[in-house]
């Protein structure tokens, strides 16, 4: 019997191994989709750290995603010879700064005020991206070419799908694992307890404002990394990366997947991207169906896909309908 403590690590190792063989199993079209799924999975995970863990409902997460996306696009165009690492590093640095500054302003308020303020900030960023034509390309967007990846001893051509897929798998995968690790740390647990009872935390001597700011900045930087890969994946970035639509997208992914667990939003990202691809082939009205699915999920299955999976698993293991409260975080998931 494997020690319970090691299980998550084995699970992660298995996922990486599964990801590593995918280029052999999947055709280019699906590999392309899988790359997109991985990128959006990180975006959804970062959002869930805010929503699921800290209980902060933000309508402005796309400003970090878009900021990362635009930083990569603009820097690759304007700084000749910039390496892939440099561009990604810049994106993370930029979103960290933006996260820290906006977080400092936004986190003074709670609940609905916070939600509306984030929406306002997102709109502000989006307006700047649309109007600042000389830098962001406005409605035209920016086309970039992926630079080669320099590993010190060798250089890998990133033009192909497969090589970029592996790069994404490794970097984004590592980022997701880091996010999971973050939830296991004392800091991560503090965030959880803060959600449950902030007053008590204050009495115990924690500075909840600082903890929250750290979390906000952290999730911003993670979303920025996802945004950076979004630009690198599509080799294109336009104002829709920073628009409120992109916030709605991540909200949908997170809710469809379920906010109760760490892995739920990743499942949500998978379902969202797959559905989007298939639905938009069938009908031009695909956002309508996405909306219906969202409404259905929120009304009847508030725990998302995670809830369905848990229910089905309980059926199999014979424990009929012992519905564990989803709000309670389990250590390993």
């Amino acid at each position: 019997m494997i020690a319970k403590k090691n299980r998550p690590y084995l699970f992660i190792a298995f996922l990486f191994a599964l990801g590593a063989v995918m280029p052999v199993l999947l055709r280019q079209y699906h590999l392309n989709m899988l790359t997109e799924i991985i990128v959006f999975a990180l975006y959804a995970v970062s959002y869930n750290l805010l929503l699921g863990y800290a209980g902060l409902l933000s309508f402005g997460h796309a400003m970090f995603f878009g900021m990362g996306a635009f930083t990569v696009a603009v820097s690759l165009i304007h700084i000749p010879g910039l390496s892939l690492w440099g561009a990604i590093g810049l994106a993370i640095a930029m979103t960290t700064v933006v996260g820290f500054v906006t977080g400092g302003l936004l986190l003074r308020h709670k609940g609905a005020y916070f939600a509306l303020l984030t929406l306002a900030f997102n709109s502000l960023f989006c307006a700047v991206a649309t109007k600042w034509h000389t830098v962001t390309g406005g409605d035209d967007g920016l086309s970039v070419t992926r630079p080669d990846l320099s590993l010190g001893f060798t250089t890998i051509n990133m033009a192909g799908l497969t090589s970029f897929y592996y790069f994404t798998l490794v970097i984004i995968g590592a980022a997701i694992v880091f996010c999971w690790y973050f939830t296991q740390t004392a800091m991560g647990q503090t965030v959880l307890m803060m959600r449950e009872n902030e007053e008590r935390m204050k009495f115990l001597g924690y500075n909840t404002n600082i903890s929250r700011l750290i979390l906000f900045t952290f999730t911003g930087a993670v979303a920025g990394l996802a945004g950076a890969f979004y630009t690198l994946h599509f080799q294109f970035c336009s104002q829709s990366a920073i628009s409120v639509d992109m916030t709605t997208t991540v909200l949908l992914m997170t809710f469809v997947g379920g906010t109760g667990t760490f892995w739920g939003p990743m499942m949500g990202a998978l379902v969202y991207v797959v559905l989007q691809n298939y639905l938009s082939d069938i009908t031009d009205r695909w956002p309508l169906f996405m909306g219906l699915i969202f409404v259905f999920m929120v009304l009847f299955i508030p725990g998302g896909l995670t809830q369905i999976i848990q229910y089905v698993r309980n059926l199999f293991s014979g424990r009929n309908g012992t519905d564990k409260s989803l709000a309670v975080k389990e250590g390993s998931s």
Binding site: L25, R27, M267, L270, V274, R313, S317
Partner: peptide
């Protein structure tokens, strides 16, 4: 058990992607 189940679901979803046109 839980992880294995999650894996099964993930794998099925991924394989569903591979249906040739």
């Amino acid at each position: 058990m839980k992880k294995i189940f999650g894996l099964a679901v993930l794998s099925v979803l991924l394989l569903a992607l591979a249906v040739p046109a």
